[in-house]
Simulated scan of single mutants.
Amino acid sequence: MGEKLLTIEDIAQAANVAKSTVSRVLNNSGYVGKETRKRVEKVIAESNYTPWVTARNLSKQMSNTIGVVVSEITNPYFARAFEGISEVIDKNDMNIIFCNTDRTPYKEEQALRMLREKRVRGIIISPVIDYDVPEKAKLFRSQLESISAPTVLLDAPVDLDLWDGVFFDNFDGAYHAVKAMISSGHRQIGIITGDRKNKVVRERYRGYIKALKDSGLKVDPRLVFVGDYTVETAYRIGKSMIQAGMLPPAIFTANNFTTIGFIKACIEEKVELEKDVSVMAFDKLDEYDIFGLKYNRLERDPRAMGRMAAGMLVTRIQYPDMPRSRKIIPSKIVMCR
């Protein structure tokens, strides 16, 4: 039978026993004669069968591999989340197929099609789609359902009636980050957003607006700079506002790539952080800490999020009929002074 994924029927035929006998051997339940058990176990051993895979997996020809699909592997946030996922999956003797979609719906569709062909045991995915758009949501849902594997959503605001998920409250996080800036004495706080066609971006922007209004501050459109969550765009925006004399005394950079681009512009223009401008970053920049840069931040633990998502998936695989689960990861505000 070589490298073929076995079914119970394959094993039964090779061992010359009934399928129910194979099932009892695999699950170690019910009586099976000593010689018969040896014969079944010999077929399994000679076929390189992995014991972790249950009888139900064999009957469906499922693999011992999970798929992980993220939208932006170059983002340190997702890289650390993947470390957490790997930690749990390795401990459970499973394999991982990793897919990066580059925030492209077509690449996401290709990845899901490939995972379906690979008959993965489960999926952890951070979707590209905006679930508030009905036609996109319908397509995404049909793609996942066609795989027929347990699925955990990673840091994405998608309908939880269908899948488990580990999330972050983007509105609440942005709200408290901006409120912390206001509490430290700032009254003019700008923001560099992403593309507000994306729900996560809208939620963070909504948190920014709500924090200002709840503090009795007006929203100044001149302080709202629309980016796309890339280093390059944030860098251009930062250079432009500094050179035009439009740099606010405080600014909320709404994702880590935006923070990196903005800080790069400040360094080149000799703008000193916390003296000339106070930055509130969405996520900690571990790679920048060695430079001693002063910036405020909202901190999350993406590695813990990855561990949580992988643990949730393993549990779902073991107990497919349990109620759907939703977990919100915590965060904290760190002020640099």
Score class of each variant (00 low, 15 high):
L162A: 10
N92I: 01
F167A: 09
S23I: 05
I97N: 04
R119T: 01
I242H: 02
A18V: 05
L162W: 08
K138M: 05
A310N: 00
I317M: 15
F252H: 06
R113D: 06
K199C: 11
V226H: 10
Y77F: 15
A234G: 07
V158M: 11
F140Q: 05
A281D: 04
R56M: 12
S20F: 00
F167Q: 11
N57P: 08
R187K: 14
P127N: 14
A14V: 01
R121F: 04
K270G: 07
D10C: 01
Y288S: 11
K213W: 04
D228F: 08
G207R: 01
V178S: 07
V53D: 02
E9I: 12
G292A: 07
T54P: 00
R80F: 06
F167I: 02
F140N: 07
R37M: 09
A111M: 11
S184R: 14
R300M: 13
S325D: 09
L58K: 05
A174I: 09
I123D: 01
L58P: 05
Y77M: 07
T21M: 09
L212V: 03
G227A: 04
N92S: 13
Y31A: 13
V25L: 09
I124V: 14
G173Y: 01
A79N: 09
M181R: 05
I267C: 00
G194Y: 03
S148N: 15
V88L: 08
P302H: 13
R121M: 10
S63K: 01
E135T: 08
R222N: 12
I85A: 00
T7W: 06
F171A: 03
C99W: 04
Q13C: 02
L26C: 12
G173I: 05
S146G: 06
P320S: 04
P330K: 13
L154M: 15
R56D: 12
N92A: 14
S278F: 03
N100T: 06
E41K: 05
R103F: 09
R206F: 04
I8H: 06
I73N: 07
G122M: 03
K332E: 15
N27H: 14
K19Q: 10
K199E: 15
A180E: 03
F291N: 11
E203C: 04
I66G: 01
R113T: 12
A234T: 02
V271C: 01
L285I: 10
V334G: 05
Q188K: 14
V279E: 00
G33F: 01
E117H: 08
P330E: 15
P76W: 03
I267E: 15
A310I: 04
L298T: 08
I124W: 03
Q188H: 12
D301C: 12
N57V: 00
V133I: 15
I66K: 02
Q13E: 05
Y175D: 05
S148Y: 02
R121D: 07
E9T: 13
D132G: 10
F82T: 04
D276R: 11
Y229P: 04
R103H: 12
F257E: 07
L212P: 07
L162Q: 09
M280G: 00
V53A: 13
E274I: 03
A12N: 10
P51D: 05
I333V: 08
G185K: 01
P76R: 07
N16M: 10
F252R: 11
D321A: 13
K4R: 11
S331F: 10
S126M: 08
S23Y: 06
